[in-house]
C-alpha cells in the first residue's frame, strides 16, 4: 500500500472509531503505528521509550475520540498529540537528567540508520552530522523541516500539527533547508 492509501485507511478507521465502532481501533493502529513509531524513535533513539510514547499517543486518541470530526484527517492530529507528549517528556527528562546519560545516548545508533545497508556506511556519519546541525536550528524551523522532510507530512498536515498556516511551514522548512545546505552542502543533503 502507498502512503496515501495508508492515510486514507487511517482516516476512515478513525471516523468509524469516533462514531463508536471499537473494532476500527485495531485498523487505526495498523495504519498509524509504524509512522508514529518512526517519528518517536528518531527523536528518542530508544525502542522502549519510543514504544511508550506511541502507546500514550494511542491512548490519548482513544480518550479524545469524541473530539475527532468524522471525515477529518487523522494524521496531523495523531502527530500533534505525539509531538506534545514528546515535548512534555523531554522537559521532564531535562529536569531529572543524570550524569552520563548524554554519553550513553551519543553512543547509541541513530534509528534512521538502523536499516541502512553496510555499503552506505558513510551515510551514517552524514546522518549524524545532519542530526547535529538540525539541533542547532531554531525549534520552529527544525520542527517544520523534520515533519515535512523526515516524517513525510504534507505542508498542510505539518501546519495543523504545529498550529500554524501552510505558508508559514513552507517558509520555515525552506529556511531550515537553506541553513543546512549552507552548513552541510547541497550534495550532502541530496545524499541523505
Amino acid at each position: 500500500m502507498t502512503m496515501e492509501e495508508w492515510t486514507s485507511v487511517a482516516d476512515a478507521a478513525m471516523s468509524r472509531y469516533a462514531r463508536g465502532n471499537d473494532s476500527a481501533f485495531s485498523e487505526l493502529y495498523d495504519a498509524l503505528a509504524p509512522r508514529l513509531f518512526t517519528f518517536a524513535l528518531r527523536r528518542l533513539r530508544d525502542d522502549a521509550r519510543a514504544e511508550d510514547l506511541v502507546q500514550q499517543t494511542f491512548l490519548k486518541m482513544h480518550a479524545a475520540r469524541r473530539h475527532f470530526i468524522p471525515g477529518a484527517a487523522v494524521m496531523p492530529w495523531s502527530f500533534s498529540i505525539a509531538r506534545h507528549l514528546l515535548i512534555d517528556r523531554m522537559r521532564a527528562e531535562q529536569r531529572e537528567r543524570m550524569v552520563g546519560r548524554d554519553d550513553a545516548r551519543e553512543a547509541a545508533e541513530l534509528p534512521c540508520m538502523r536499516d541502512l545497508p553496510d555499503h552506505a556506511a558513510n551515510v551514517r556519519g552524514l546522518t549524524r552530522r545532519l542530526e547535529q546541525e538540525l539541533a542547532e536550528l531554531p525549534e520552529a524551523h527544525r520542527a517544520a523541516f523534520e515533519l515535512v522532510q523526515l516524517d513525510g507530512l504534507s505542508m498542510a498536515e505539518a501546519a495543523e500539527v504545529l498550529g500554524t498556516t501552510a505558508l508559514t511551514v513552507k517558509a520555515r522548512a525552506h529556511r531550515a533547508y537553506q541553513a543546512l545546505r549552507k552548513r552541510l552542502g547541497a550534495e550532502v543533503l541530496e545524499a541523505l
Binding site: 485495531s26 493502529y29 495498523d30 503505528a33 509504524p34 509512522r35 513509531f37 518512526t38 524513535l41 525502542d47 519510543a50 514504544e51 506511541v54 502507546q55 494511542f58 491512548l59 534509528p111 534512521c112 538502523r114 536499516d115 523526515l150 516524517d151 513525510g152
Partner: peptide, 14 residues
Amino acid sequence: MRAVSPSADLKARV
C-alpha cells in the same frame, strides 16, 4: 522516508 515498525506485542498492550 522509511517507517520502522514497533514490536509485535505493543498492539496488544495498546
